[in-house]
Design a protein around this nucleic acid. Sequence first.
DNA 1: CGGGTTTTGGACTGCTCGATCCATAACGTG
DNA 2: CACGTTATGGATCGAGCAGTCCAAAACCCG
Lengths: 191, 191
Amino acid sequence: MPRPRTFNEDRAVDAAMKAFWTFGYEGTSTQDLCEATGLGRSSIYNTFSSKRDLFDRALRHYMDTRNAAQLELIQRTDLPIRERIRELLWDAVEPAATDPLGCFVVNTLVELAPHEPEIAELLERDNLLRVEALTTAISAAQAAGELDAGHDPDALARYVFVVLSGLRVSARAGATPAAQEAVVVAALRTL
Amino acid sequence: MPRPRTFNEDRAVDAAMKAFWTFGYEGTSTQDLCEATGLGRSSIYNTFSSKRDLFDRALRHYMDTRNAAQLELIQRTDLPIRERIRELLWDAVEPAATDPLGCFVVNTLVELAPHEPEIAELLERDNLLRVEALTTAISAAQAAGELDAGHDPDALARYVFVVLSGLRVSARAGATPAAQEAVVVAALRTL
DNA sequence: CGGGTTTTGGACTGCTCGATCCATAACGTG
DNA sequence: CACGTTATGGATCGAGCAGTCCAAAACCCG
């Protein structure tokens, strides 16, 4: 019997995510969020309890989609390990045209992680998930003779994600795809 | 005959730099700047025309010290090229104890570069300076047989700075020195 | 030691922030 | 079709923002 919502909550979170991704947490006002989502203030505060809560939802939405896709890619045993890592790094070379520059997680790490332990922990846990998966994948590849077994798989996995973070900082600074690709090629040579 | 200043302008800029470095541009209020520098509002606005102007001074101060030191290190022909690059990456492993986490330039790149062309250009020019110096140094090392000559020196130089950016994102997220070191070791293997 | 100049502290301004409130609109159900 | 319930839009709130202003203090020089 109540009046139903006229908007899709998931779409609103997605729109808010792109606003936060583009302008950062402090750089996005509630007014910006209204415009990005197309909602009125009341609808936003009725659905999400605060700007911070909406930010958390947006961040989790990012992790649930992008980072989850990375995890799947890492575990695709049908592809050679080098190819999986190349594809992992590749979306810093050719990012989706509809996405803001860079990486929402990297931005948030830089802006909020040092001052907000909860955020730092959330991102750390999420990062560890992918690092461990890649460590496992690298170990398996070493055992299979696909990679040189002389190096610590965990260090290699962390190295790959450090390079990815660096590429995403460069992307934020407007690096060209050609420059990014050259870096990916150099980075892959380590493996 | 006028009343002289009771504070040191350079010290004020340095204190402001650490505040901006720690909390970002949007995250640092003028009140924060007063507390960080120990100055009153009037002194700040009398000396620097605006928050933004003080930020620019702080950013240039960072570049004039840290980045200039990097440039010198890159050009130290008395050291083997690998050693120079190792030291370059090393201050993401053992940063100065009095410095905030991460890197002021990386933070600013992430927060402001996409929306402020002036900042983006300033940082791009500064970055290019060091990339070109490293490219030259790598070229020379290849000619001297110190490095494998089969790879593009410019791509290698960009690769090194991408790794450095990535390490500084990790530092911001609280990575341990041990983890950072392992990544540096892996990264150096590419050369 | 007094006059001219600048610095300094603190009150103050207008504005925007995140968040709340309320009257009205819109819906499903009985 | 009317009632109960929730969604919506817009006015509104106090707080904090960047920046200004002014009276008083501090200094150097003659």
